[in-house]
């Protein structure tokens, strides 16, 4: 049986050789890394940055950081995971240095409530198969566009936690906020995205939002309204 410290797969051996080459500052090894993993890093950068030019800059900065920091790479994570984090970090730094104009205010995307705490707009169910529909490519594009509509601070937290699945403590560190603030921001981001996706998935003829105002359903005059928390019209 191989000793535990020995690389035990072809892939691990290949990675160990790659890292060794990078530590030797071997230009050929580095070029191989740029060519083999550059597209993947570009894809990650593009999730955060709208501009291809900004993403290209971030990829370049990331490779420089890999080159300069390879001696600090502990080898506990996979090289590709480590590079992934570097790109995310560089992309976030780039975002922080930019100011986005014309962003939607998050408050406009969140649920509204009546003074008594009821939802102002009753939530409509989404039609069966909303998940399955993702097989349709145009729907994926629409979902990505909805995510891009989120204000930057919210889109970023959603990307880190729900898409990249980076854990809370690391995501909070990357964003420079507390875990409590991260939690609130992520919840708001999901709520806002839910609202943006609703028109895509609600099966309703009641308008683009597919939602029903309580003011028009007369729930406030419902005799049960005083004791029950809410009353909804049934949805298809």
């Amino acid at each position: 049986m191989a000793a535990r410290s020995e690389p035990d797969s072809v892939e691990q051996r290949a990675e160990a050789e790659l890292v060794a080459g990078l530590r030797r500052r071997d230009p050929a090894v580095f070029e191989r890394l740029v060519r083999s993993s550059g597209a993947q890093l570009m894809k990650i950068a593009r999730r955060y940055l709208q501009s291809p030019a900004d993403a290209a800059d971030v990829v370049q900065e990331s490779f420089v950081a890999v080159f300069e920091g390879i001696d600090r790479f502990a080898g506990q994570a996979q090289l590709r995971t480590w590079m992934h984090r570097i790109v995310v970090n560089k992309a976030l730094m780039r975002l922080r240095s930019q100011r986005r104009h014309g962003e939607v205010a998050i408050g406009d995307l969140l649920p509204r409530f009546l003074p008594d705490g009821h939802q102002e707009i009753e939530t409509q169910p989404w039609r069966a198969g909303a998940d399955v529909e993702l097989l349709a490519r145009h729907t994926q594009v629409q979902v990505r566009q909805a995510i891009d509509t989120l204000p930057e601070a919210y889109r970023t937290v959603l990307m880190l936690r729900d898409i990249e699945e980076i854990d809370s403590s690391e995501a909070a560190l990357l964003l420079g906020i507390s875990e409590g603030a991260l939690r609130v921001r992520l919840h708001r981001a999901r709520q806002a995205l839910r609202g943006l996706l609703a028109p895509l998935f609600v099966e309703s003829s009641e308008g683009a939002s597919g939602q029903t105002s309580r003011a028009t359903t007369g729930s406030t005059s419902d005799p049960e309204a005083a004791s029950a928390p809410g009353r909804s019209t049934p949805w298809r």
Binding site: R47, P111, Q119, E122, T123, Q124, P125, W126, A130, D131, L134, T139, Q140, V143, R144, I147, L158, M159, D162, I163, R190, Q191, L193, R194, L197, A198, F201, P229, G230, R231, S232, P234, W235
Partner: peptide, 21 residues
């Protein structure tokens, strides 16, 4: 029911965004 739908569509939002990206 409105909150039941809200929770359900919140969950779907997570699945859909993950699946799309």
């Amino acid at each position: 029911p409105s909150c039941v739908h809200y929770l359900d569509t919140y969950r779907k939002t997570l699945r859909i965004s993950r699946a799309a990206l």
